[in-house]
């Protein structure tokens, strides 16, 4: 091919090879810039959601409404708070007073299997690499306590050699990205701006889709009311400046609650001064209950 041929080709195509490559480069830069800008934009969105500035699935108009016209709760503005809970499993003594207090406070069904919060016992026998797990709903524990409403762990491991054992309190994680809200067909459950995932019982049709969706098993179905049941961190208490019932009664301070917007609140101190974990981080729900002392078997 000679120079004349190249000239002809350029004229035919309307573009030289150099021109084409230059354009390709410019295009790549532009595309990169666009992707970068979009990425940065979504990063800002995520951090806003993380600090509670924007609730889950809230559009701009609804967000503005939430900020400017918050729900009418006396002496409370949900824009000022971002609630979180800590659970120190190294302090939990498994007394189950949290369960009892929760049931009384929230009129949860008084039986072993419908709980807003519960405690699990993990026991590694000597030489075993897997944990034996039970909760108060275990038939042996119920038989030992004598009643489903006397929440109590039995002493079944007193005659065997135990390598390691501990209690873990569980409750709704009030996730940043709640699966239960995602699946609710009626808008009966939603993420409030200050953290808790709430249930509007007048709108719940009892389909129990949320019960299945929750990766933590934190929801149950209240047959007597016909609606889903879940922990809401005692929303009626925290909006009045009180602690949730379980935190209020915990005799060892294993449960810690507070406002993450206040750097000196118990939970802020707890998160700042401990190496905290969340349950099932791989699920991507971004829980708001932070644990200390979790073991490999705890899910």
């Amino acid at each position: 091919m000679n120079t004349q041929d190249l000239q002809t080709e350029e004229e035919t195509c309307g573009m030289s090879r150099r021109g084409f490559l230059g354009l390709l480069g410019k295009g790549a830069v532009c595309a990169g810039a666009i992707v970068g800008a979009v990425g940065a934009g979504s990063a800002i969105g995520a951090s806003e959601a993380g600090s509670g500035k924007r609730a889950y699935q809230q559009n701009d108009k609804q967000f503005a409404e939430a900020v400017n016209n918050p729900p009418k709760i006396p002496e409370y503005n949900w824009n000022d708070h971002q609630w979180a809970m800590g659970v120190d499993t190294t302090r939990c003594i498994g007394c189950l007073r949290c369960m009892e207090a929760c049931k009384m406070e929230n009129s949860v069904q008084m039986d072993a299997n419908h709980n807003r919060t519960w405690v699990e016992r993990y026991v590694y026998l000597e030489g075993s690499n897997t944990a034996l797990i039970d909760s108060q709903a275990d038939p042996k524990n119920i038989a030992n306590a004598g009643s489903e409403t006397k929440f109590r762990f039995d002493n079944r491991y007193k005659d065997v050699k135990v390598e390691k054992a501990f209690f873990v309190a569980k409750l709704c994680n009030q996730c940043e990205h709640p699966s239960c809200v995602e699946v609710c067909p009626t808008g009966a459950t939603f993420k409030s701006k200050d953290g808790p995932v709430l249930i509007d019982t007048t709108y719940c049709i009892g389909c129990q889709y949320c019960v299945q969706a929750c990766p933590y098993g934190a929801r149950s179905f209240n047959e007597s009311r016909g609606t889903a049941e879940k922990c809401n961190w005692c929303y009626h208490r925290i909006t009045k400046g009180l602690n949730p019932a379980c935190v209020e009664v915990c005799p060892t301070g294993s449960r810690i609650f507070g406002d993450r917007n206040d750097p000196e609140s118990p939970v802020s101190l707890f998160i700042r001064n401990n190496h905290v974990q969340v349950l099932k981080p791989e699920m991507g729900n971004a829980p708001n209950v932070f644990y200390v002392g979790l073991d490999k078997e705890v899910v």
């Binding site: 609730a55 889950y56 699935q57 809230q58 609804q62 409404e65 939430a66 016209n69 729900p71 009418k72 709760i73 409370y76 949900w78 207090a101 009384m104 406070e105 808008g187 009966a188 459950t189 939603f190 993420k191 409030s192 701006k193 709430l198 249930i199 509007d200 007048t202 709108y203 809401n232 005692c234 929303y235 009626h236 208490r237 909006t239 009045k240 009180l242 019932a245 209020e248 009664v249």
Partner: peptide, 25 residues
């Protein structure tokens, strides 16, 4: 109040918060 703050009834927030606490300390 539906869609006020999101895909839910906005008035429900205040309703839930209005419950009277039982534990008194």
């Amino acid at each position: 109040s539906f869609y006020e703050y999101g895909h839910y009834r906005g008035a429900a927030v205040a309703e839930i918060a209005s419950k009277v606490p039982k534990l008194q300390g």
